[in-house]
Nucleic acid binder design. Sequence first.
DNA 1: GCGGAAGCTATCGGATCTGATAGGGGTATG
DNA 2: CATACCCCTATCAGATCCGATAGCTTCCGC
Lengths: 242, 242
Amino acid sequence: MAGNSELAQLALQLREEGRSLGLPLVATCADISSARPTLDERGEPVASLFDFTRPAAGYWKKGDLALRNAMVALIRNLGDPFYYMDGAVGSWRPVKVTPRLEELGRSVNYAVRSAIIAPVRLPRSTLGAVVWASDGEGVDVRPLFEAHALRLHGLAARFISACDTLAHGAPEIDLCALTRREVQCLKLVAAGKTDSEIATILGLATPTVRFHMKKASAKLEENGRLRTAQRAIELGYVSTRL
Amino acid sequence: MAGNSELAQLALQLREEGRSLGLPLVATCADISSARPTLDERGEPVASLFDFTRPAAGYWKKGDLALRNAMVALIRNLGDPFYYMDGAVGSWRPVKVTPRLEELGRSVNYAVRSAIIAPVRLPRSTLGAVVWASDGEGVDVRPLFEAHALRLHGLAARFISACDTLAHGAPEIDLCALTRREVQCLKLVAAGKTDSEIATILGLATPTVRFHMKKASAKLEENGRLRTAQRAIELGYVSTRL
DNA sequence: GCGGAAGCTATCGGATCTGATAGGGGTATG
DNA sequence: CATACCCCTATCAGATCCGATAGCTTCCGC
């Protein structure tokens, strides 16, 4: 089952939380962009830390989890934890869903009827999640959500973060002091503007914009405007909204 | 001071947590890429919900918070909450810092001597944070961190998320079913590869790669390869690591 | 005053992306 | 068996980016 490593401890905690809430099926994913399972210290899938022998558990093993799934769409778009109950979705704040997605959520006969899901966003634009699901018949998760979502979210974040550190190691953190102008240019680049457009907006010549971008690329240690903009966004210098 | 809105309630909670831990100065930022202060329902800065009248509090008002700051560099790079104590930094896992940044952290004579900081990552690559700082003399935050970081992190996440929803509204969530090929192309594009490079890697013709990218752009409702790749990364289809 | 950094501008050619347009083959679902 | 969708390929011209290289002013701290 597990040793007594930190990861195993955290996994145990997740499992116990689920059991005590009547949501014994626990599924975790440290990076939904990757098909590879989350691994522990010994290189074994952390899934082995949980109970995946029950009938409904077969659902989680299907690769289909990764695509065309209403739940994953919600994970991709929501920051807060949320619950899922026979097609209905709720969170701390109202969740707006397109009719198409809602239809899909209702129509698909999931083996899982109710669940609490915690999306986890890590540095480097990594997206993970922890799902606590009921086994067989549904459970009214709304009161459970109200009472426990905050703690579950915290536990999920800590667990996924531990998995991530294990997989990728701790990065060396440096201070990259971007200039005001560099940040201005980066924001506009990230907005999809052309160098000449940016020049017009900022009242500069086009070569100047390129100059600033080159400086920014060097400081962020990236090549190409795409990578540079991406890194600036990851680090929070630039927002992608508006 | 505040009404009885949800945001005010959450802010009150943050403040009370800080007080009971001996970290009465609370600073929040819902988006570190923006200079604008976080606003509440009535369009007033949420800072008014906290106590910013103390001497040390002046520090937080300086715009310098946003640039050239060791603490912000940590917020940008860390997913877990962390503590800060006279230049020393710690978290649940070891934090690697370049000598340069460490030097900066020690040398700068912060008015704030000890603090617990919770970075918050939201959808759309938004980065926020909540800081609980001591007032005047330092506090040994290590035991406090061990005991309370998980809860503080959860509270911070919920508060910042509420601010964010308030500022930008709830997005309508849709399912965008990207194809396997489209995702493959997006991953390589996000890695900075050229269309022809991608074609070679995937064993395709260059026009085919462009075809898939165009499809992906349409599905993600973005224009240009930069925006498209960015959106795919945000939604967790693509990871930026390796 | 001098070094250093920010900020600004310019030119060049080659590599690359972009939009518009036009197909054909394969497979699943009704 | 028809429709839809994925997957693949092609061509064209124009817009855009990229690397290398060179020079300018201004402001700051030592």
